[in-house]
Design a protein around this nucleic acid. Structure first.
Lengths: 157, 157
DNA sequence: GCAAAATATTTCAACCTTGAAATTTTAGGC
DNA sequence: GCCTAAAATTTCAAGGTTGAAATATTTTGC
């Protein structure tokens, strides 16, 4: 029926979307900033390190560097640096897959796994606290909406 | 009535909040990444530069460095660097307020203002495109929710 | 008036981030 | 079996980010 491209939609709707984006970004920054402070204070670590450990925690057998960067939506070079530092700290080890000497599989050490478990527990409580005023119903509705948004995006790109 | 702290809420609700946070963060990263690419490609600039210019555009008489960093939710030192580079590029100038030689007011030059106007126009179209599948009604509802979240946060901190 | 506290900004080291180039290794075409 | 293309990662320069220390200036208390 309506074949006009997205940019020719009702102008008021586009203003509303812009407002939504700005507020979403600010809310995300507020929460991220608070999480960063707490991770630093309580566990002497950073959000990027937490993210990497979180990804690895769910894959005990480890992840390729490229899978890690794709999953986290960051560049390859970025992951290299973060993993390097986690290795230095003894939380992650690198191995090769099969006989392929190009690949590098990162996985948590026991110390890394234990450390992440502690952080994840605190993290969940922090989020519950920070998003405490969002009702369960709102959270569920919003969450579904965002998942749909992501799926759509993935399919198109 | 119920005086239990946020962390003692219904566990299922907390899981739902955690899921919401993770999805919100990922959605924000997808959109931010796309905006970064386009700003780089079309205007040879960065998101932080865009943010600073956006803030200054709304205050033609300029902003204190500290107001800028508070508004953008970033550190003081951060703003110093970004403004330095915008000054080098001829988009921003610094001045002193009154006789106070501690303060530094940054404001857009004419070139900066013209450049931002062009970027803002493109930016609005991009957001309309990227969030095109969010209905106007959803956008409004979500937007109100996020504003309430922010207001609450500001009052508590 | 002056010393001390408060205010505004900058500087700096460490880390994060990207995108492009370089490196190393494997796979494919012939 | 080679040679070239493809794949996986690392390296690197430039910029972004924080938090703490340093600098410069103004205000306050006395």
């Amino acid at each position: 029926m309506d074949a006009s491209p997205e940019t020719l939609q009702k102008p008021a709707a586009n203003k509303e979307r812009l407002r939504l984006w700005i507020r979403l970004l600010r809310a995300a920054r507020v929460v991220e900033g608070e999480l960063r402070d707490r991770l630093k204070r309580e566990f002497d670590t950073t959000l990027p390190r937490f993210d990497v450990m979180s990804a690895l925690y769910r894959q005990p057998e480890g992840m390729l560097m490229s899978d890690l960067s794709r999953f986290l939506l960051v560049s390859n070079g970025n992951v290299t640096g973060i993993v390097d530092r986690l290795v230095t700290d003894g939380f992650v080890v690198r191995a090769n897959r099969d006989g392929d000497r190009r690949t590098s599989i990162a996985r948590l050490t026991e110390a890394g796994s234990a450390r992440f478990a502690a952080m994840a527990e605190a993290h969940e409580i922090w989020i519950a606290e920070l998003l405490g005023e969002v009702s369960e119903e709102d959270a569920r509705r919003l969450s579904v909406m965002l998942k749909a948004f992501r799926s759509n995006w993935e399919n198109e790109h």
